[in-house]
Simulated assay, not measured.
Amino acid sequence: MTSSWNRELYIKACQFAAQAHLGQLVPGSDLPYLLHLNLVSMEILAALGAEAGHDGDLAVQCALLHDTIEDTDTTYDRIATIFGVRVADGVAALSKNPELEKSQQLLDSLHRIERQPREIWMVKLADRITNLQPPPIHWDSAKIRRYREEAIEIYTHLQSASPFLAKRLAAKIQNYPPKT
């Protein structure tokens, strides 16, 4: 019971993302940002292996490209030209709208994601799974609590997209922040 995906499209998206995020680091580390994108895509690949019926190419490409519009100078039009409108629409939905107040950005993005195919929902679930690592040392308890509450909101809105990823995110939320 697996969903297929094209390795050449994966390589194309990974190379594009590596170039777009060149020089960026995972926040709070000296690791290249490409690591985060690969961890998100790894979560997607695991879900595709566990669940049938998903468009693996859409999910994998959006996983690798999900932060390009938000965090680089890459435009929607460039993604649409290279990867197609469906991928560009998915990446745009996964991007926060910087014109909104920070407190409104997550809910706005979730509403835009909900109008996309379920594979885009899966990317958001995988992204938050990946981000629920030990919080940065400089975060206070209120920031950690808000981040966990955001994860619960993501879970609540998007869990139906993938039982596999929903279960993974629920476990991450349950253990966040990890006991030290």
Rank of each mutant, 00 (worst) to 15 (best):
M1H: 13
T2H: 09
S4R: 11
Y10F: 15
I11P: 02
I11D: 13
K12D: 12
A13C: 06
Q19Y: 04
A20D: 02
H21M: 03
L22V: 02
Q24K: 15
S29H: 08
D30I: 11
Y33A: 02
H36P: 05
E43P: 00
L45G: 02
A47I: 08
A50D: 02
A52V: 04
H54V: 04
H54T: 01
H54R: 13
D55R: 02
A59F: 10
V60Y: 04
H66G: 09
H66W: 08
H66K: 09
T68I: 07
D71G: 12
D71C: 13
A80W: 02
T81N: 10
F83Y: 08
V87Q: 06
L94C: 06
S95P: 01
S95V: 03
S95C: 05
L100G: 08
Q105K: 14
Q105G: 10
L107F: 10
H111Q: 15
R115W: 03
R115S: 13
W121R: 12
D127G: 03
D127I: 01
N131T: 13
N131W: 06
L132K: 00
P135M: 04
P135E: 03
P136Y: 00
I137W: 05
H138R: 03
A142W: 08
Y147V: 06
E149T: 04
Q159D: 10
R168N: 07
A170Y: 05
A170L: 11
A171H: 08
Y176W: 12
